[in-house]
């Protein structure tokens, strides 16, 4: 059971890395945004398997949902390039990006030779097991910070997007 679970995790990790690689390598920005959403979805599964279900739900709804929407909206507002520019762009990209897979394979080989044998001694497990209780009772300052951050976001969005609305 143990090794099976591990294999499952590694498969998902591999898929996630693949999705991330595709995000970076693909030519179209739109596909890139979708790749990011896929990466995020894989991350969600991993988080769920690592006993963080609540955060996983947040990740799924906010990161692979909301942020993708923001990206796709931004991409669709910005105009597409002309045909010859696209061709030039593709050649440009190929030159710059084909090093990445090679780099990754090299890093993979190097890291898999490094043995990780020292015993981690970890701190005692916590008593409180409910993240909601932790957030509300032990970390109210973070909640206040979230509120202030959201206000900042509101101000930012009003200021930065206002002109677009008028046009």
């Amino acid at each position: 059971m143990g090794t099976q679970a591990l294999n499952m995790d590694i498969v998902i990790l591999f898929l996630m890395a693949l999705a991330a690689l595709w995000t970076v390598m693909t030519r179209s920005l739109l596909r890139s945004a979708i790749g990011l959403a896929l990466t995020s979805a894989m991350l969600t599964i991993l988080m769920f398997r690592l006993h963080a279900p609540l955060a996983a739900v947040f990740e799924l709804s906010v990161c692979s949902g909301l942020i993708s929407v923001v990206f796709i909206a931004t991409i669709s507002v910005t105009q597409p390039m002309s045909q010859e520019k696209v061709l030039q762009h593709m050649r440009d990209r190929l030159e710059r990006f084909w090093y990445l897979p090679i780099l990754l394979v090299l890093i993979g080989i190097v890291l898999s030779f490094v043995s990780f044998k020292f015993n981690l001694s970890v701190p005692l497990p916590e008593i409180e097991k409910d993240p909601r209780v932790v957030l509300w009772n032990q970390r109210p300052l973070d909640l206040l910070g979230q509120i202030i951050m959201l206000l900042t976001g509101v101000f930012g969005i009003i200021i930065l997007f206002r002109e677009a609305k008028q046009k």
């Binding site: 955060a55 947040f58 970890v122 993240p131 932790v134």
Partner: peptide, 21 residues
Amino acid sequence: VTAHEALVQSLVITLIVMEVV
């Protein structure tokens, strides 16, 4: 790994909010 899932979940939720903004 450290069995601090609850603490880390609350941190990650905050992190996601920051990230979106």
